[in-house]
């Protein structure tokens, strides 16, 4: 067990190195010039040359990569061409909002997906009216869902806000939901929830279906397993059979799919944040793309990629905990 955890963490570190190498190489071939970004376009050629030397841009690539890694470890992701601030401080400002949105949305996805799976596997009456539309929505591009949601729930019904987080946070954690509780501000807490619902649900629908489908098929195959027949022949109540024998043996595949989807959500958040003007790093990335702000793009890719890799490593470890056959 411990050996597996250690090996899994080691492979996560290798993956991070590869990710940084890819970003570094892309940075090297990207057209933007970090020196001019730093000094401004009007800097004299001599100043530029001196700065290039100082930044180590004339060194061989491996040396530059080591320097790049060292900088990363010190939290230095370079300068944003657009904001002329350090990418790290930009990201630090925007990251909490993204994590908050994705976390809430992931919970939505789990709830929607579980209802989808359970209602299908147990053949709840009328559940087709839930599953059918959800299936269709899951094939829609997220931007269409977001825009449709805005038109219906904001413009037509005026039920939900369509832009931003509703408030800025000045609290200790940077997470609006938590800070508003810490600072004893239930009003802001409620406003924050209102603002989370639309982007959260839009972001949740595709993962909900992906998780729900896997969970449903593994529920269905577990329901036909011999040991469930054994449990039924013990005369256990239906819900006891499900709770003790079916669920645990079904969640393995759904768990790894959920991890995968959580990772995907950190990528999918970009479009949603942009449409809802959500002050997160997805929005930051979306705004950096039109102006080709490569350091910013690279920074976001690194941060979200790191989260993705860590999430998947954690899910793998959780899966071995859930199934005793997997741990040696």
């Amino acid at each position: 067990m411990t050996r597996f955890v250690v090996r899994r963490l080691a492979s996560a570190v290798v993956l991070l190195l590869v990710l940084t190498a890819i970003i570094f190489l892309l940075q090297a071939v990207s057209p933007g010039d970090p020196v001019k970004a730093f000094l401004g376009n009007n800097a004299s050629p001599a100043a530029v040359a001196a700065e290039r030397q100082a930044l180590g841009l004339n060194d061989p690539l491996p040396v530059q990569y080591l320097q790049f890694l060292t900088n990363l470890l010190h939290g230095d992701l370079g300068m944003s061409f657009r904001s002329h601030r350090s990418v790290t401080s930009d990201l630090a400002a925007f990251l909490p909002a993204t994590i908050e949105l994705v976390t809430v949305s992931f919970v939505f996805a789990l709830i929607l997906g579980t209802i989808f799976a359970v209602s299908g596997a147990l053949r709840w009456r009328g559940s087709a009216f839930y599953r059918g539309p959800l299936l269709v929505l899951a094939t829609a591009p997220p931007f269409l869902l977001a825009l449709g949601g805005i038109v219906i729930f904001y413009a037509q019904l005026s039920w939900l806000p369509a832009s931003g987080q509703g408030a800025d946070t000045t609290g200790p954690t940077g997470f609006l939901l938590i800070d508003s509780i810490v600072t004893g501000d239930p009003g802001t807490w409620g406003v924050a929830w209102q603002h989370l619902i639309l982007p959260g649900v839009v972001l949740a629908i595709a993962p909900a279906i992906a998780i729900g489908r896997i969970l449903r098929s593994s529920l269905e195959s577990t329901l036909q397993a011999d040991f469930v027949r054994t449990a039924e022949s013990k005369g256990l109540k239906g819900h006891v059979v499900i709770a003790r024998h079916v669920i645990r043996n079904s969640i393995g595949p759904a768990l790894s799919m959920a991890g995968l989807q959580l990772g995907f959500m950190f990528a999918g958040v970009v479009v949603v944040e942009q449409i809802f003007s959500w002050p997160g790093i997805g929005n930051y990335l979306a705004n950096s793309i039109p102006v080709s702000d490569f350091p910013a793009i690279a920074g976001v890719t690194l941060v979200l990629g790191t989260i993705y890799i860590i999430v998947n490593a954690i899910v793998d470890v959780l899966q071995t905990l859930a199934d005793p056959r997997l741990s040696a």
Binding site: L19, L26, F264, A267, I289, I297, A298, V300, T301, Y308
Partner: peptide, 12 residues
Amino acid sequence: LPGTLVAIAIVA
């Protein structure tokens, strides 16, 4: 690796 993000970085 997170495919979408890497794709974005490559295009960028």
